[in-house]
Design a protein around this nucleic acid. Structure first.
Lengths: 108, 108
DNA sequence: ACATAATACCTTGACTGTCATAGTAATGTG
DNA sequence: CACATTACTATGACAGTCAAGGTATTATGT
């Protein structure tokens, strides 16, 4: 299973995946990529550039807010917090995913 | 449910959806969009421009071949035929979809 | 006869999400 | 003291989608 394939088919779900992670508490960027890799059983690696562009988009949309934490180890950390609006967007996206899934399963 | 949302989440599946249709026999372009709309219970409308760019891509990749038929009604029809290579690509794509689905379901 | 709708195909240019690449900077390890 | 790891950021390219516009034929209603 190629990396390329996974990325193409997961396209558009990055925002939702990140919002889902933030539901269980504030996280910093680097931590998010590591968690996704771990939670997917090492099968999906969200690229840093993709994640940061998603975080930027989410912040501009008011789905998340950010604040600098103290860098305890390594570089300083920027933490992300999900807003009420973010929770709402997450819920909609998850619902849309179930909907899209049923359509694809019917057409493929 | 907005059109926009559907398109974003079905992105990348267009080729596979078309290949799936061609498995049951040669079809012409316009017919493909109508069939997809019908098969999805009027819930997904594959845009013409998207379909033609997908057909062009598939033909370049050797997944399909094309030939002109007689236009019995309306404009002349260009028919598309799936090749052995197309069947192989379809099978791989379908497998990849099942794989991606399981990953997304775990991360979302 | 004539306008309109429907059939059927095609091109172009813009937009968006992804990612390779590159860079900065701090801390931990051998 | 070099090197790996942690951690964030910017840029430029690429690919799939689609709105918009175009051409041409046939069917339908008046």
């Amino acid at each position: 299973m190629s990396e390329k394939m996974t990325s193409d088919l997961l396209r558009g779900h990055t925002d939702t995946i990140i919002l889902n992670l933030l539901l269980s508490g504030d996280k910093y960027g680097y931590e998010i990529t590591k968690l996704i890799f771990k939670n997917s059983n090492e099968q999906y690696e969200l690229k840093e550039a993709t994640m940061y562009s998603s975080l930027k988009r989410l912040e501009q949309d008011g789905a998340i807010t950010s604040y600098w934490g103290e860098g305890s180890q390594g570089g300083r950390r920027k933490y992300y917090h999900i807003t009420d609006r973010g929770i709402q967007i997450y819920t909609e996206n998850k619902h849309n995913w179930e909907y899209a899934k049923s359509i694809i399963d019917r057409l493929i």
